[in-house]
Nucleic acid binder design. Structure first.
Lengths: 315, 315
DNA sequence: TAGGGTCACAACCGATGGTTGTGGGTTGGT
DNA sequence: ACCAACCCACAACCATCGGTTGTGACCCTA
């Protein structure tokens, strides 16, 4: 179905369209006029359309050529950005956001809205260990994580800023015993089955839920393979005895007709602390902009009536 | 400076990233595993970065690979649309808009806002002759034009709909005699030098200004080569004795500090009539949508106090 | 430790895409 | 009306590229 376009050919097409003459385009690309002629001919054969009308004083775009031209330019733009994304030196700011639907991802969307000119590459690493390693190696510029896991303090060269406390909510199906509640105290969750597949021991999120369990006497089951959030939501919706935790700012693809309920948890409200981590010596100019943006836009923390593990860094 | 990426390689990269194993990607692309390995190796050498970490049970993306992946996907999307833009059959709706800054272009932007799902290719043809020929040949689907030049009625198979009457405004520099006026009656323009380079005899816009000149005794100079709107604006701004006409909805790149004035023309206000033209038998589904959109959103015409040539089609 | 899975390297070879040389065709000056 | 000066296309040639097959090193698991 797809044609093996190659970008040199596309570049040739754009150069020829701009120049209006194959010769000039050839000079610009430092190839011969015959090479340009051949490339264009091949492109036309691949597309099945005539792109230029050859005249005695050059080559003019056909209507098909005019239609193709802006797409060709866009293609070159995107290619340039793709290459730039892995260029060492001035590359887009690389930020790790835990998951694509997390609150950190929302913060980055906000940052992108107010700074649309700053190029970003958003990615999702496994845990804080790999994130810190990636930051120290320079592979990424910043990471949103809960810091720090007990017994594993942040290295000296890593700086952090507490940027968002995200309230946890209980997610249940319509037949769950708590489905009708407008909110639920943490203590009332004792004895209920809370299912969170995909928790990997040793990660900072596992440490968070371990502490939560210990503090309030909950039971969280992490059994079974993690088939992704869709499967999780399906199961929660269909199983009256099962609930799960979810960040209050998580963006869900809400399955229609499932009747899922998001129920705030209170007394106290467990909050998941997101901090921004970065390397003290990272000179990326956009990093300072991001820090300033987050410092300016994020609300206060440690609101009374909330809970976080005591190993969480202050701000 | 740019690297000769080719899209087959990019496709291979995406397939390998999705599959997690070169073998599976190879099967999907119906090439051998060795070919995939080679392609990835070449891509990594070109980019100067390692994209995968090879393990015993497959290949995992490095951080650089993760950063590159969304750009690679975007590249393939754009490529697909580029190819689709010249595919006969279901291709984007092709609309000719006179110039990229014309009122018709604004109408298309509005259409795109309310129907972002409909793919469009907007282009600018020379005059109504070529537009009609392109419509009849199927090369384009619709055109915004003033119809019809006297003596050249629309062919039977071309339908039209009057969609917008655009008031003409006078554009002057700050030192022009009329620069201070809030509006100016057409009759007061007699004797003033109005300069509109780029008018080509025989086109429908030339016919429009010919009629305007004849009706109100104006003098329009079309002399001199047309160096584009930037050069025109520069000259108008610097020359007290010169003014030009401009569509009231034209989007200008307003040069800073030029002090240009746009002055409405009255008694009557000359309006430039934009009609949508299309082929009666054109089955493109988006064409009907566009017609309905325009019929619903465009205001009435032939407002009292306005003027159009008498050869303009009624609606 | 044997076996089945992964990817990489080497040798080979046809297709691709560049070069030079040449020819047809329109334009414009003499 | 011709000829020079431009255009682009076609042909022949040839190096490189990108695929194939064959093989080997490696890792995990039974």
């Amino acid at each position: 179905m797809d044609i093996g376009l190659d970008l040199d050919t596309v570049r040739t097409f754009v150069a020829a369209a701009d120049a209006g003459r194959f010769q000039e385009a050839a000079a610009e690309l430092t190839v011969t006029q015959q090479a340009v002629s051949k490339r264009i001919a091949v492109l036309e054969r691949k597309l099945g359309v005539r792109l230029f009308t050859r005249t005695a004083r050059g080559a003019e775009l056909t209507i098909d050529g005019q239609a193709f031209l802006p797409h060709a330019r866009e293609l070159l733009r995107v290619a340039e950005r793709a290459v730039a994304s892995v260029r060492t030196g001035r590359r887009p700011l690389r930020v790790d956001v835990l998951t694509s639907r997390s609150a950190a991802s929302g913060l980055m969307r906000g940052f992108h809205r107010t700074h649309p000119d700053i190029e970003l590459d958003v990615m999702t690493l496994f845990d804080i260990e790999t994130a810190v390693a990636a930051i120290r190696s320079g592979a990424i510029d910043a990471s949103f994580r809960a810091v720090a896991v007990p017994g594993r303090p942040l290295p000296e060269d890593i700086a952090s800023l507490r940027v968002l406390d995200e309230s946890l909510e209980l997610l249940t199906g319509p037949a769950h015993a708590l489905a009708g509640a407008r909110s639920v105290p943490v203590a009332r969750l004792a004895g209920h089955r809370i299912w969170m597949p995909g928790i990997v021991p040793g990660t900072e999120w596992a440490a968070y839920y371990d502490d939560l369990v210990a503090e309030f006497g909950l039971t969280i089951e992490a059994t079974g393979p993690n088939f992704g959030s869709d499967a999780l939501l399906d199961t929660i919706a269909d199983t009256p005895a099962l609930a799960t935790f979810m960040g209050g700012q998580t963006r869900l693809i809400w399955p229609a007709g499932h009747g899922l309920r998001r129920i705030p948890v209170t007394d106290p409200t467990p909050v998941y602390p997101h901090s921004l981590l970065w390397h003290r010596d990272n000179p990326h100019p956009a990093l300072a902009t991001l820090r300033a943006h987050l410092a300016a836009t994020t609300p206060g923390h440690d609101v009374p009536g909330t809970w976080t593990p005591d190993w969480v860094l202050p701000h």
